[in-house]
Design a binder for these strands. Structure first.
Lengths: 345, 345
DNA sequence: CTGAAAGCGCTTACAG
DNA sequence: CTGAAAGCGCTTACAG
């Protein structure tokens, strides 16, 4: 395509030195103890500038074996786009931390067309270009995680994930705390019969459920209950709302914002009043997006922080500075909005 | 750190073939016309699987000279975070297109601490790891763009940017069209004296201004005017609003969403009614974020599309399939909301 | 102070 | 059908 880029050899020839010297000068390294003469140095710099030379990073990477590259791989489709505002704050945190530690960030989008998205495309690890990788996504392939772990490839999962036989690194919000706080709030308002609506049965949801149950137990109230309403992709909102209404619960803990909004919309359609007829809590960050929406009572996450800490942890792991499995719970905050109130019945 | 990863040589040894053969088999390439025997192939595959071998992409990149990597570099700080929802839709579009074309995406965050963010860190092109790069950001360094262009490094700017002596590639919304539509709308409502509030004087703003002026000229109304209210980082909202009110304009075209929200907030503080006292238009996508906010009259962008088209253009350029400068205007849509109405005076 | 050589892990003509 | 060699562009001990 373009005229070939100038190479180290060109600079060396022009400056009248060897390639090794060019490398030393440009990287400001003096390998033996004796420094290179100022006169030689300026000759090299001038030649580099004259040629518009910049070292080919690929050559450097190969020779040094260190790429200064943090990968991001997600098991979720990047699309549908509605998830952007959930996914991207993590990315911001990752970028920030990577930037501070002088790493670039590599998004492994390459095989994202293939369904499902896999790390071992053609049965080979496709993550090797990065020194280590941040993994995300609701439903990872545990076998892949196990294999990755056994191969010694450095990675950190955003979200708690248990892999048989391995203690993988993860960073995650303390969903358990958040769910417990939400449950206490509902108990204080006078609710006794709570519902929990959730989708997949992955660890983050288990943590939330555990938090709810613990708060109920700690509350030591007589006659409290927690009913589960499992949903999946085939669930119909109208039916789910009917089932919930018929169940006698007066308040609903929603696994995440998506469930929260999905139910909220349907309730409005059916004329169910929130919080009059039913109190509603989102166990992840939710926002009042439309002008006529209530401010949600929700557990506010700090995705930026989680992303940054995951990156810090990963870099430590890459550098061999992490001893033992890193499994971190980061704080989240319970925020009382307008979607919860005293029970009506 | 970890036990060293198995290398091509290990596979070759185990399978009892040469390194070249391993390469041929694993890449499913038959360089001469004669295929490699099935028996040899399975031996190689088995050895690779047994060792958990995956080719080191850095080696491949160096040998092939093609990295399948699209870079993203922005002159804007990634932070403050408020810009996330403006910046990220572009990213989504880039990712999508890169994914479809089997490219990975590299975020050049590495020197993002240094102020200002530069491509030529240590006077050397830091973008070389990617085959080509998408550039973004409000206030690029034109000298860098010129140098990049002259070196033949493939890049596409998101946003029109003129560089002396070069015809660089860019992809951009048709702001001119959007601004013209907004202006026509205001004229139809009966406004005659319009204001334009804008910050930097970069090309996108010039396009918007040109659109406004053209619509005014085409309207052929007597006694219309367009007043400019330039602002910068030191501008105080309260003062700007005072100046605007005193100026006699009845409608305001805001260069972007940030200006729109900044003025909107201040007007509410001062009790200026929108659109009663003043009609307000945002010339980029704006949303009603708070429950008691009006639906904005605005020009709706399609950042995802722009990101995707920029990526497509860049890849063509990288592959040498682009002939001549690529300078594309993509459609945007004018949306009438609640912040515009007939003038009061 | 500087140069020649080996090596990083791969691919690709070129011989056999 | 397969192997030996050169080359991608760099860095890093090692000699001088």
């Amino acid at each position: 395509l373009n005229a070939k880029r100038p190479t180290q050899k060109d600079v060396a020839r022009m400056a009248g030195v060897s390639r090794g010297t060019v490398s030393m000068v440009l990287n400001n390294r003096m390998n033996g103890r004796v420094p290179i003469s100022d006169e030689t140095r300026t000759r090299v710099f001038q030649a580099a500038a004259a040629l518009g030379y910049a070292p080919n990073p690929v050559g450097q990477m190969l020779a040094q074996g260190n790429n200064c590259l943090i990968g991001i791989f997600t098991y979720d489709p990047v699309f549908p786009y509605e998830q952007d505002d959930f996914y991207f704050p993590y990315l911001t945190g990752i970028q920030q931390e990577a930037s501070e530690q002088a790493y670039n960030v590599l998004l492994f989008t390459r095989n994202h067309g293939t369904e499902p998205h896999r790390i071992y495309a053609n049965s080979m690890n496709s993550l090797l270009l990065a020194d280590g990788c941040i993994l995300m996504g609701g439903m990872p392939d545990r076998d892949e995680l196990q294999r990755l772990y056994n191969e010694g490839y450095p990675f950190v999962y955003i979200g708690r994930r248990e892999v048989p036989g391995c203690q993988i690194d993860w960073v995650i919000h303390d969903y358990r705390y958040g769910a417990a706080a939400a449950t206490r709030h509902l108990l204080q308002l006078g609710h006794r019969h709570l519902g929990f609506v959730g989708g997949n049965g992955e660890e983050p949801q288990a943590d939330k459920l555990a938090g709810c149950r613990q708060a109920l137990a700690d509350g030591e109230m007589p006659e409290t209950s927690l009913q589960l309403f499992p949903i999946d992709k085939s669930s119909v909102a109208a039916q789910v709302v009917q089932v919930i209404l018929a169940s006698g619960v007066t308040a609903l803990l929603c696994d995440d914002r998506k469930v929260f909004e999905w139910l909220g919309r349907e309730m409005r359609v059916q004329g169910v009043r929130v919080p009059g007829d039913l109190s509603l809590v989102s166990l992840t960050t939710a926002e009042a997006r439309l002008p006529d929406m209530l401010a949600p009572t929700h557990v506010q996450l700090n995705q930026r922080l989680v992303g940054a800490v995951a990156t810090r942890t990963l870099i430590k792991r890459v550098l061999g500075e992490a001893d033992g499995p890193q499994q971190l719970y980061l704080p989240c905050k319970f925020v009382v909005g307008e979607t919860t109130g005293p029970p009506n019945r």
